[in-house]
Every structure is written in structure tokens, then in C-alpha cells.
Computed example of a mutant assay.
Amino acid sequence: MKNNELKNLIDKYLDGALNAEETAQLEQWLDGMAADDAFAAMPEQEKETARTEGYNRLVKRIEKAQRPTIVKRMFTGARSWKIAAAVACLVITGTLFKNSLLDIVAPHRLTAMQSTEGRIKKHILSDGSIVWLKGNSKLVFPVSFGEGNRVVTLEGEALFEVAKDAAHPFQIQCGSLTTTVLGTSFNIRSSGNETHVAVLTGKIALSAPQSGKVILYPNQQAIYKEAAVIARENRNSASVHEITKGTEYDMAFNDVRMSEVVQRIEKKFEVNIALQDAAITGSLITADFTDQSLQNTMEMICQALNLDVEINGKSISLKLKKES
């Protein structure tokens, strides 16, 4: 799609004159932009939705999005050819913006991340779950989870810290083995026809075609071989270090200065934390935030140090409570 064609679509939207055929035209253009066939891999129902109302959904979601605020201003105020053309150029040339458009039009499309040998790659999923993908592994997941179960597919090994959501169970497909959780932390390692699952916190349910359901609790693990039953066995607690090595999973602190605590929280959750009062920096924390969500971590810190917190997307502000 040429810049002037996209400009015309923007102008028509501003005038309320965008029809279904033009929506399909935009979807086709986005399809051509998608890398690694990600757009083509999205569910058929989502594709159909994108065809019929994609552009209108795009604009509505841009207005609600946190990151592309400049795009929102362009769309709401762009009444001139010059600004509309600038948006078109940004779309055509900007890879980051291209991916944002795809995420908005097709929020449940499948995408993938892959790690290389000897490296750990972290990703925070749309529900807040954290995945540390270990060497030479691949995770396939939706850009944004829908209303049903949260389903991902794993090839290789990964440490999961799953956000708690009882209404939407989290499922990992690893070959013919399905791991179902509500909110917990565990490690899955698949090699060849053998899959090892080790639970750190909470509980998980394992199921496979040839085996009955097996429930695992903390300090338990199971081994599954394709076309066989799931075998439960006790896990040596010393292996916890091996499972979590190279990740930010361990968040236990014993008389640690807040300046260091903040750095570790920022790295784990990929946020920016501002301490509004200098007195907070030297405060000491003794607490275990392991397997806690960002929200819970902030609430625990505020309770311990008598602070107020303000969370705005990826920006967090902590300040001393005012005495009443």
C-alpha cells in the first residue's frame, strides 16, 4: 500500500466513511507487513474479525494504548494532508509501529520467541506471567490472551512464573503433554521424547493421552515419555538453584537497601521505579517477594515502609505517606 492510499484510508476514517472493503484492504496490507508469518498464524475467528472491523478496532485501541500516545494525537487531530501523510510514512517505515498495528488489529495472533544455546531469554506475557526461555528453545504464544484458557506451546526448556487467574487457567502444550496451572512457578524441560516438569510453588496438573491426570505440588517433579504414563518422583531441593540460575526468579531480601531492591525489581518486571523521597533509598528490607506479582510486591513494600505507590504502566512512583 502506498503512502497516499493509506492517507486516504485515514482521511476516510476521520470523515466516518471507511467501509468494509477498505477495512479488508488495510488488513491485507498488514498481512503483507507481518514478519515470520505471524499474522497468517492467528486464529481464523480473529482473522474474520479483523476483516470486518479491523480498522475501526485499530483506531479505538490506539486511543486506549499506553505506548503510542503520539499516534493517538495524530489520529484525533490530523485534519490535514500533511499530518496524515506523516502518519503514513511512520507506518511504512517504522518497524516498531508496524508491530503495534498488528498487535492492535489482531491482538490474539500467535507469535514466537526463541533462545539460543547457552543463553536465557525472558519475556513477560500479556497477563503478566514471566517466562525465562532457556538455551535453544522456542515458545509460541498469543500477543494477547483472549477470554478462554491461556495457552502457549513450548519446545525445549523454560521456567514459568504464572500470573494468578483462576478464571483463565494457564496451559503449556509440550508435545502430547499438557500442563495446566492457575498461578504458580515451575520448570519444564523437553528433550527428544522425554519431558521433565519440576514445581517450585503452587500446584499443577499434568495430562497426556496415555496417562491419567497427575497433580504435582512444591518440591515434586514428574517425567513423561511420549506414549507412556506420567511418573511422579521427589525432587532434590538442591536443584532449585540449578532451575533458577541465570534468572531474576529469586526475590528474597535480608536487610537489603531499597536502592538494590528497586534495581532487582526493575530488572525482573521491566519497569522504572522512582523514589520520590531520599529517605526511602537507605531503608532496609527483609522480605521474600519470590513468585509475587508486581502489584503484590509493591503493596508489600508499601506496608513494610509506610509508603504510597502510584503505578502508571511501566512507571512506578514510591513516596512516604503523609501523616494525617
Rank of each mutant, 00 (worst) to 15 (best):
G156S: 11
L154Q: 13
V140A: 07
I130S: 02
L182G: 03
P142R: 04
L177P: 03
S176H: 11
I130G: 01
S129V: 06
L177E: 05
T180W: 05
L139S: 07
L154K: 12
S191L: 14
L133C: 03
I130A: 00
A166H: 12
T184Q: 13
V151N: 15
A167M: 11
A163Y: 04
K164Y: 04
N149Q: 15
G135Y: 06
T195Y: 01
T179Y: 04
V151D: 15
N136V: 07
G192N: 12
L159F: 14
T184D: 14
T178P: 00
E155I: 05
A163E: 11
A167E: 08
F145T: 03
S126N: 13
G128Q: 02
E155M: 08
S137I: 10
V152Q: 10
A158K: 08
V162D: 02
L154G: 12
A158P: 08
P169G: 09
W132I: 08
T184A: 12
E194Y: 00
K164F: 05
A167W: 03
T178A: 06
K138N: 10
K138S: 13
P169F: 09
S190Q: 15
N193S: 13
L159N: 01
F145Q: 08
N193I: 11
A158M: 09
G148N: 08
R189K: 15
S185F: 04
S137M: 04
A198Q: 08
H168T: 00
Q171P: 00
K164R: 10
K134Y: 00
E194P: 00
G135I: 09
I188Q: 01
V140L: 09
L133E: 01
V181I: 13
T179P: 05
T195I: 13
Q173F: 13
D127K: 05
T195A: 04
F141P: 07
E161D: 15
I172L: 09
R150I: 02
D127H: 06
F145L: 06
F170G: 03
A163F: 02
N187Q: 09
P169V: 10
R150A: 05
F186L: 11
L139N: 07
F141C: 08
